[in-house]
Amino acid sequence: MQNYAFEAIQLGGIAKKVRLELVKLCRSGNSGHLSSCLSCVEILVSLYFSKMNHDDKFILSKGHAAPLLYVVLSERGIMPKGRLSTYKRIGGLEEHPLFGEGIEVPTGSLGQGISVANGLALAKRLDKDGGHVYVLLGDGECDEGQIWESAATASKYSLSNVTAIIDRNGVQSDGPTEEIKQKNDLAEKFRAFGWEVIIADGNDFSSLERALSVESEKPKVIIANTIRGKGVSFIEENPRYYYGTMSSADFDGAIKELEA
């Protein structure tokens, strides 16, 4: 499968399509995680349509963004398109990712993705395999203690083939991240744990491209500043748009905005 060059316009078109399909999928399954999916669309599109090749692995540590992962895998041709119609049906795609059909690692409980990435990266080293392991975390997720256990392990084994990306959208379940537990020091923390830290605009393809191209002997973390609900104005304006089921009016409004 051929990857696209980092042409922001081309990737922008894909992101637009992904957002449309994402809104439809979330509506079909009454998913409560639309806004935290919308914030990381550019990140997943960059990885799956441009950066990653067949040697690379991706882990969605923020498993609640599964609807986005399903849409991206389906748009990329890795997951059969018909699978999306099984979303949240018995025996079909779950609200959080299971295993198979392009999904490398089952997730859904937060804080565990970097540890799993470290395991995949160590196996690559033992097997002298090329390729890189990417893991996407939420910023709220960084409250989990295991993040810091795994950050220290990646550093101990100098896992230069691991890149963590933090979707820094500033909101977690109970409210703004800085109110729940301060996270503005994430960069300093990761530096202290021996990681290469790169700050990027997570909704901008060029910025993501530069961040993903940084070479380092250390494990890398991209703190990707994003906007929660990106692309749908009324969700962007309301950080509390979280668990709610979308009304028909909201759905029509979102589709209209994304099709414009």
Binding site: G111, V116, N118, G119, L120, L122, E149, S150
Partner: peptide
């Protein structure tokens, strides 16, 4: 760091 231990084992097994 036992939580890290078992999740890392999972990664190695997947590979």
């Amino acid at each position: 760091a036992e939580q890290d231990e078992f999740s890392m084992a999972a990664g190695l097994a997947i590979a």
